[in-house]
Design a protein around this nucleic acid. Structure first.
Lengths: 114, 114
DNA sequence: CCTACTATTTAGCGAGACTAAATAGAGTTG
DNA sequence: CAACTCTATTTAGTCTCGCTAAATAGTAGG
């Protein structure tokens, strides 16, 4: 099956990122990879797509990011570790409900037998 | 449940219109109403949203439109009746498969338990 | 040194859904 | 008959947000 078209993701990317972080904190590059894996080849998010989402979610107080330091730090460019904020957990739940609503309504129209 | 946000519809509207016409030809205003009903209050498409979709689909050869005349015609402003073209039927099937793929992949990410 | 991989940043583009208003015929009400 | 309300279509302009593309930077290997 082909790649999921860019526009189809609109309005769902935030929920996808929040859901990914709900399974454990991580830095941008890692989240990108996790989404790629979870997308089973159908998702190919690029940096320019994901990072702005993270900035937006952090600015909105949904996630909290801090530069990795100390013991856990590794060699290479510095990484910003993000985790879900309280607001983000609430928001994720809300977005999951909206997702179910969305697929029920839109699916009911798109999949309706002729 | 609240209204389905505009952006979430992106990339799915075409499929919704094709599916609506698969259940019987109709004119723009009617399609708008049918979608409103099928959306159970969660969809509120306006003219400026729907008509451009029809023009686009017609230009792409997915649907065929003609001005209503003769016996079936009714009083009031003239109406343009659209019906699925052969290409449109094929396209609808393809889009339905893509829809299932989409909700499987995205749903798998958004709904995954923490 | 060059390439490759991890990691982040950011400027600018474009698709397409939305807002808003205009146009128009027919029926209804005061 | 003016004003209003439906049905019905058209279209100009806006805005969101995911995508393209490239730059910057640290580390490692050939």
């Amino acid at each position: 099956m082909d790649k999921i078209s860019g526009n189809a993701l609109r309005g769902h990317l935030d929920a996808m990122v929040l859901a990914t972080l709900a399974r454990g904190e991580g830095h941008g590059f890692e989240i990108m990879q996790r989404l790629g894996t979870a997308g089973r080849g159908a998702l190919e998010l690029k940096e320019g797509t994901l990072y702005p989402v993270l900035y937006r979610l952090e600015a909105a107080g949904m996630i909290v990011g801090k530069w990795e330091t100390g013991a856990t730090e590794r060699r290479g460019p510095r990484r910003r570790i993000y985790k879900l904020a309280r607001n983000g957990k609430r928001d994720l739940k809300r977005r999951q409900e909206q997702w179910r609503h969305f697929i029920q309504i839109i699916g009911g129209i798109v999949e309706a037998p002729a």
